[in-house]
Structure formats: C-alpha cells, structure tokens
C-alpha cells in the first residue's frame, strides 16, 4: 500500500478538492474539470486518485454527497463542503502557504 509515500500528495489533493468545492456543490467530473481549469491545465487529477479522495473526504466528514441532476440534465452525485470541510480548507490553505513561503525563501525567490 503506497499510502505512506503519497502522504504529501494526498494531502495536497485533498486541499485542491476542497478548494474546487468551495464555490458550490459539484460532481466528481466537475471537480476534475475545475481543478484543471483553475490550474491552467497544469494539474490533471487522475480519476484513480479523485474518487478515493472524495470517499475519504466524505468519511472524514468534510464533504457530503447527494444524488442530483446536472446542468445538462444528467443524473450525477454531487459533493458539497460541510462546515468542518470549510474549516479544514482554511487550515490546509494556511499551512500550505506557510510551507510554500518557506520553500520560496529557501529557493531565494521571495
């Protein structure tokens, strides 16, 4: 199980998904589209990581899911941030900023 090695990656992915859901509920496909778009096509989330992450976030209580109908009238499962999820996003964003700041300092770009 590669869990230990992908810890950083996974945490980052969690943060990205939470961020993608911040404006409002979205289905899994939508989340991957949002992340791709916001990152300017740099970050491509594999479905193999996306769905396990979504299920994990749901188990953590940070998102909740519900079946609904998408814009183009398709059935889809929508994910929505919970209050705990918003708090978690804030925590993760802050710690990410600290980390990236520190890395930037080290790299001498700040």
């Amino acid at each position: 199980m590669p869990k230990d090695k992908s810890d950083l990656l996974q945490g980052t992915l969690d943060m990205l998904i939470l961020r993608a859901l911040e404006p409002g509920p979205s289905h899994g496909f939508g989340v991957s589209v949002i992340i791709r778009r916001i990152s300017g096509d740099v970050l491509q989330v594999e479905q193999g990581s996306l769905y396990p992450a979504l299920y994990r976030l749901e188990a953590e209580g940070w998102v909740r899911s519900e079946w609904g109908v998408s814009d183009n009238n398709r059935k889809a499962k929508f994910y929505e941030l919970t209050v705990a999820g918003r708090r978690q996003l804030a925590v993760e964003t802050e710690s990410w900023e600290r980390l990236s700041c520190a890395i930037n300092l080290v790299l001498g770009h700040a």
């Binding site: 289905h27 496909f29 479905q47 769905y51 398709r74 889809a76 499962k77």
Partner: peptide, 16 residues
C-alpha cells in the same frame, strides 16, 4: 451500486 453508477456517469460526461 452507487459507486458503480457514479463512475459510469463520470465516463458518460467525459465521453460527451
């Protein structure tokens, strides 16, 4: 069943 359905729908959207 939910999981299978969700993934099938995802592929449909992608396909579209």
């Amino acid at each position: 069943a939910d999981m299978a359905e969700e993934m099938r729908l995802h592929m449909e959207m992608q396909e579209a």
